[in-house]
Amino acid sequence: MDNFFLWLGMGLFFLVLLCLYRGVFGPGVLNRVAAISAIGTKTLVILLIMGYIYQRVDMFVDISMVYALLNFLGTITVAKYLEMSGEI
């Protein structure tokens, strides 16, 4: 079962790399913001998988909740900034 979760985490890591390509080279700010938000979501799942592998799920759940909160807040802030500054 550990092996399965390890491979699952590797697959998610590959998907994070795909999102990172969109975040670095993506045309326009909006693509980059969406890519960063998607990376945050995937990182959250990877953190939970790491918690399962290290057998400390209770600890990693706390960390991933903070990560989700800061990801949400960051995306909203950037979106609000783009709306207010009239770039889009």
Binding site: V66, L69, L70, L73, I76, T77, K80
Partner: peptide, 13 residues
């Protein structure tokens, strides 16, 4: 930091 983030979220929204 989390407590401050909640107030910042309130300010933004």
């Amino acid at each position: 930091v989390i407590l401050g983030a909640s107030f910042i979220l309130y300010l933004i929204t």
